[in-house]
Simulated assay, not measured.
Amino acid sequence: MNEEIESLHKNGTWALTELPEGKRPLRCKWIYKKKDGIPGVEDPRCKARLVVKGFNQKKGIDFNEIFSPVVRHTSIRVLLAFVALFDLELEQLDVKTAFLHGELEEEIYMEQPEGFIVPDKEHLVCRLKKSLYGLKQAPRQWYMRFDSFMIGQGYCRSQFDDCIYFQKFPNESFIYLLLYVDDMLIASRDKSLIRKLKIQLNNEFEMKELGATKKILGMEIHRDRQAGKLFLSQEKYIERVLERFNMNNCKPVSTPLAAHFKLSLDLCPHTEEEMERMSHIPYASAVGSLVYAMVCTRPDLAYAVSMVSRYMHNPGKDHWSAVKWIFRYLKGTSGIGLVFDRNKATTDDVVGYVDSDYGGDIDRRRSLSVHCCIVYD
């Protein structure tokens, strides 16, 4: 808590002042968390963070625009494919207290934080000068600040993804930076370009260097540069999900969704007793966890997850059994993931796959078809 307060004062986050008439101060609270470290880079640690209770903000008074983009998972995978194909350097940075760098446009007041009320100034409130965690506009203000900085350094923003920045040089060298809130991936052939960008970022923000990328957004990255391979998986994430839903000791199965599951609306609860029983089952949370694995590294779950997602509004016992079946599949396949192999890339080679479930939608008597094209360059 002392470290957090020291960081806030160093950043000039607020100034004590009298509360103007007609204004109301937002309340705040402390959040405590144990953070997992990155093996060989960062040890596990305890963290305290001061958070504003932003749910009390009023639109047009305390905030206006709040949308802030983050890099797409597709963009991350494309970058990793380039890293494997061209044998690029890939490093990771983390911004310390990223949201605190955002400049506020609105006039916002906050009560003094618990445990750090200034003696003889208990009647004063904090006039926020910089953004703070919990404010609705905090992510947007941070992104706007970072975006203006990168453009000022001569970087271009991708027209396909607002969180991709790149710069090309006359000697045909280049550098890419991907931003996901406060996590950054930097890729380039030239280490000196990465060092230069790190210096620029450190001069503007307080950064934490994490070295060669090993983990990003719950995805583990393993590289074998000699073999030209990059492996992307979510083994640790899947293990945590299985433990969370008490499926860590289940019996593994070999398919994402067995043929005997004939899911339909007829299997939804129709009595109050059935609805009451299903209300205690974390169906939506479980499916959401599966969706994240599917989006990141497990496209093999796509069909099964799409089936169980149709009944989020009113799941039944059989729908829950199908979700547990997917967990059993993950139990036996937690270590598999995506492989980017430079040696398998052949020039101008396109491979396509297509399939259909032939009227698998019992409710509407429609087929679900899918296609996948892999382009090797």
Rank of each mutant, 00 (worst) to 15 (best):
E106R: 03
C46D: 13
S356G: 12
A322D: 03
E114W: 10
W142A: 02
V291K: 11
Y358S: 10
L368N: 11
I31T: 06
Y358W: 15
K191W: 04
Q226V: 15
M110F: 01
D87P: 02
K168I: 14
K331L: 08
R225F: 07
A48Y: 03
V118I: 10
P113E: 01
P69N: 11
K136E: 02
F231N: 01
R342C: 06
A84W: 00
E111R: 03
Y109T: 02
H123M: 07
A302E: 10
K35N: 09
K96W: 02
R27V: 06
E6G: 15
R77T: 06
K251T: 13
L330R: 01
I108D: 12
L19E: 04
F63L: 04
H313A: 15
K35W: 03
E3M: 11
C268N: 07
A138Q: 00
S173I: 09
P269H: 03
Y237H: 12
N64S: 14
K10E: 15
V41T: 12
Q57H: 05
S334H: 06
Y353S: 09
C46N: 13
M184E: 06
V125T: 02
L80S: 01
K34L: 12
F82H: 14
E42A: 07
K34Y: 10
E239L: 15
M275F: 04
T271P: 12
G218M: 02
L8F: 14
T213D: 00
P269T: 00
E235Y: 06
L267T: 05
E91K: 08
A302I: 12
L88D: 01
V295E: 05
F327V: 07
S334P: 03
K33S: 07
D36F: 05
N249L: 13
I5G: 04
D348E: 15
Q112N: 06
S173P: 02
H73T: 12
T333K: 02
S188P: 13
D300Q: 05
D190S: 10
E209Q: 09
T255G: 01
F116H: 12
K344H: 13
D94A: 05
D348A: 15
L232K: 06
C250W: 01
M275Q: 15
V305S: 03
A212I: 12
L16A: 11
E209S: 11
M247P: 00
E21V: 14
F261L: 09
R223A: 14
F160C: 14
M144S: 09
K129N: 14
M184S: 09
I164T: 12
F149S: 09
G60I: 03
S148G: 05
L128F: 02
L50E: 01
K324N: 09
R310G: 08
L88I: 06
R72M: 06
T97I: 10
E6N: 14
K344C: 13
